[in-house]
Write a protein that binds this DNA or RNA. Structure first.
Length: 202
DNA sequence: CTTCCGATATACT
DNA sequence: GTATATCGGAAGG
């Protein structure tokens, strides 16, 4: 299994990577009718624009990826594999496509609510993987494009506890076939809620 | 822990 | 028609 390399400061070479690094340890707060759930982010991936072969924005703007071209701090939520929602945070200036996929987190509040939204299983798996995380938070395409910095939003992104550089590992992104050489996945080293690395199906 | 594989909507060739 | 930024269940170590 791929174990990753220590986080390097050179990672800051691109704005979207700075945002990805800054999101490590942040809190995602969702308030819905079924209750509040707070997740601490433990794993993210950066996606850029035309020069990133694995990005949804690689071939330009479409109806699906339009939110990626919107203002930073807003949500880009997409539907995939016919059944899963995945949450991204738009990362760069308006009209500049870039987003950070939130791949995993630890549920630190509202564990009961999160459990009720998921199939029975271990608590550490509640938000382990992008689709599971979206499900635990009760997120769907309804909030695509929503401002995550608004105090009264259904989903909000806030400060949590930022890990030190030596607590972070970097490695290849999961489930992609293009641009696999870019180490644009970040995770908290050794955290049990981080998803396991899976190469794309051949 | 691992591998294998089916389910299923949307975007793209 | 084919691929996909995935998950969950089954089976094997």
């Amino acid at each position: 299994m791929f174990v990753g390399a220590p986080f390097r400061r050179e990672f800051y070479a691109r704005p979207v990577l700075v945002v990805a690094r800054s999101m490590m340890g942040c809190h995602l707060v969702s308030d819905t009718e079924s209750g509040r759930v707070v997740v601490r982010v433990t794993e993210v991936e950066a996606y850029a624009g035309a020069d990133d072969g694995a990005s949804h924005a690689h071939r330009g703007q479409t109806a699906r990826n339009a939110a990626m071209f919107g203002p930073p701090g807003h949500a880009y939520v997409y539907f995939t594999y016919g059944m899963h929602w995945c949450l991204n945070v738009v990362a760069e200036a308006d009209q500049v496509p870039a987003a950070v996929l939130v791949r995993a987190g630890e549920v630190i509040e509202g564990v009961e609510t999160a459990r009720s939204r998921r199939i029975p299983g271990k608590d550490r798996d509640l938000a382990r993987g992008p689709a599971r995380l979206a499900q635990a938070l009760g997120i769907t395409g309804d909030i695509n494009g929503a401002d995550l910095t608004k105090a009264d939003g259904v989903l909000r992104l806030g400060a949590g506890s930022t890990p030190a550089d030596d607590q972070i590992s970097e490695g290849p992104r999961v489930g992609i076939r293009s641009a696999t050489e870019l180490p644009w996945r970040l995770w908290i080293t050794g955290d049990p809620t981080v998803s396991t690395f899976r190469p794309a199906a051949t």
